[in-house]
């Protein structure tokens, strides 16, 4: 076995040259392309990851905005509900007040009407009573009636204060006797006599007729009025009746 040293040298150089050529035209360019693609892929992945993060952030922002909308909607609904409830209560209160005012007004009006009607009926009853009393008095003997009322008037004069009686006893004092019907001479004299005695005076009394008294007398002194007649009695009875109804 022999070795051809020339061939050995040529083959060594050949392989060296091949190493150099392939390194220059194959291994490095292909490896560089692989690395470039790897970097491109990494950059694309980074960009995709970045965009994904941005998309997630945007989605999160949208979700937060939607949540804000929902919360705002709930707040607005709650506020509107509260406002409606308040308005409803206010309207109810106003309606209650209005109804109460209307009821009170109606009640007052009804009461006034009732009172007016009652007064009217009372007045009519009073008129009726006066009419009845007048008719009854008309059927009686005027002298007897006058004597009865004259006794009552004297009794009333007796209950006057002394000062009033003293003032009436003065000579200059003017005394007026009002009767419901004209007095006859005898009755007028009797009345004059009894009243002068009751008052302790000698002065003559002025006589006057007032049919409104219905029956009885009324004595007008300087500082007093003393009466004993049906008009006063009926007025007193009416007042007592009204007082009883109110109580």
């Amino acid at each position: 076995m022999t070795i051809d040293w020339w061939t050995l040298a040529i083959q060594t150089i050949n392989v060296l040259i091949l190493v150099w050529l392939l390194a220059r035209f194959f291994w490095r360019p292909v490896a560089a392309m692989i690395e470039e693609r790897r970097q491109t892929a990494a950059r694309i992945l980074d960009d995709a990851e970045k965009k994904r993060a941005e998309a997630e952030a945007a989605e999160k922002a949208v979700a937060e905005t939607r949540a804000g909308f929902a919360a705002e909607r709930d707040t607005l609904l709650e506020a509107a509900r509260a406002e409606a409830e308040s308005l409803h209560r206010k309207r109810l209160a106003e309606a209650d007040r209005d109804a109460a005012a209307r009821i009170a007004k109606a009640e007052a009006a009804a009461r006034d009407a009732h009172q007016a009607e009652e007064r009217a009926w009372f007045d009519r009853a009073g008129d009726l009573a006066l009419s009845i009393a007048g008719r009854l008095a008309g059927r009686l003997d005027p002298a007897v009636i006058a004597a009865a009322f004259l006794d009552g008037l004297v009794a009333e004069i007796a209950r006057l204060p002394d000062a009033a009686k003293a003032a009436a006893a003065l000579p200059e004092a003017e005394l007026e006797l009002v009767s419901a019907a004209p007095l006859g001479p005898a009755l007028a004299e009797t009345a004059q006599q009894r009243l002068r005695e009751a008052l302790g005076t000698t002065a003559a009394l002025n006589l006057r007729v007032d049919a409104a008294l219905i029956a009885g007398f009324e004595l007008h002194g300087p500082h007093f009025v003393v009466g004993n007649n049906w008009r006063e009695d009926l007025a007193r009875i009416g007042q007592e009746l009204r007082h009883d109804r109110r109580s």
């Binding site: 040298a9 083959q11 060594t12 060296l16």
Partner: peptide, 9 residues
């Protein structure tokens, strides 16, 4: 020779 060249390299 070729194998020797490769081994030498």
């Amino acid at each position: 020779e070729t194998d020797a060249a490769l081994a030498l390299l």
